[in-house]
């Protein structure tokens, strides 16, 4: 394609091609500290929906090695969002090297907390806030569990913050442009701290599994083994596709670490609760 870039994030590498220069330049800036590998596991295309639409009311269609036919195009100003969506989709649909759990991951030394939840559960915000308090940021989208070792591999992509979360962005963090009026509202991407990117090839051993829920009165609950098991299968995008390896990996993860459900009313309370759980381990 006319413009392109390759990006390495943890164990995965991407090639993003675009009919326009803008999205590639935005990626180049936001992913300033990431490697530019020669080989890419996945290719993403940001293409005009027809030749003339490169210029007139330009709309970006996201395609790639893996894609969903019903995804609607995005306006050209939201090229960075389109690229991020494309990269997410490749991993969610194509990745088989690790069991993927929808979770944010932070670590102290080589021991990690997995915070798993649906979009809106606040896991990204919690991870970003913890990263300001000495925790290593391993990712806010997918916990990548190695079937061989059971350890979690960092996949520290930039965090996308929405609407009221935007004010939480620390001054010293590298950010992308403000994308107004996206399907998810106002969005800005925040690159993880340089140290987290530098350590993106160092896995950690899962030590605690938290299912956070933002916006509820503080509450802490234990989970039955079967409930944890079911929640993990539901939080995984490739559990079924991984077959027997997926089952074994998930069973081992469930059996080795404590799991709690955590409701919290605001970010600061959530951070304090997570750290208290950690101290009590």
């Amino acid at each position: 394609m006319k413009h392109q870039i390759t990006l390495g994030v943890g164990p995965v590498s991407f090639r993003i091609g675009s009919d326009w220069h803008g999205p590639i330049a935005a990626l180049d800036a936001l992913y300033h500290d990431y490697p530019r590998p020669g080989f890419a596991d996945y290719s993403v295309r940001l293409e005009a929906i027809s030749p003339w639409r490169r210029w007139i009311r330009p709309s970006i269609r996201v395609r790639g090695d893996y894609w969903l036919p019903d995804a609607s195009p995005l306006p050209r100003a939201q090229g960075l969002l389109a690229a991020e969506m494309g990269m997410n989709l490749q991993v969610a649909l194509g990745h088989r090297r690790h069991l993927l759990i929808h979770a944010a991951v932070v670590a102290r030394g080589d021991r990690a907390i997995l915070m798993s939840g649906v979009s809106g559960a606040g896991k990204s915000t919690l991870a970003l806030m913890l990263s300001q308090r000495g925790w290593r940021f391993l990712g806010d989208e997918f916990a990548m569990i190695d079937p061989e070792t059971g350890w979690v591999h960092p996949f520290p992509r930039p965090v996308s913050l929405k609407n009221e979360s935007l004010e939480l962005i620390p001054d010293e963090y590298r950010v992308g442009p403000l994308l107004a009026g996206t399907p998810k509202g106002d969005v800005r991407h925040v690159a993880p701290p340089t140290a987290a990117i530098a350590a993106m090839d160092e896995p950690a051993r899962p030590a605690l599994l938290v299912f956070p829920r933002f916006g509820f009165p503080s509450a802490l609950g234990g989970l039955a083994a079967s409930e944890t098991f079911v929640r993990l299968t539901q939080a995984s995008t490739n559990y079924v596709a991984m077959g027997e390896a997926g089952f074994r990996t998930l069973v081992r993860l469930r059996g080795r670490i404590p799991a709690v459900a955590l409701d919290y009313p605001d970010g600061a309370t959530g951070v304090a609760a997570v750290e208290a759980l950690w101290d009590a381990l």
Partner: peptide, 21 residues
Amino acid sequence: VPDAVAKALAEARIDAAEARR
């Protein structure tokens, strides 16, 4: 083949094994 390529090809074999099953 190069190491990075070998990993990607291994994934394709996992997919094929599951498709077969």
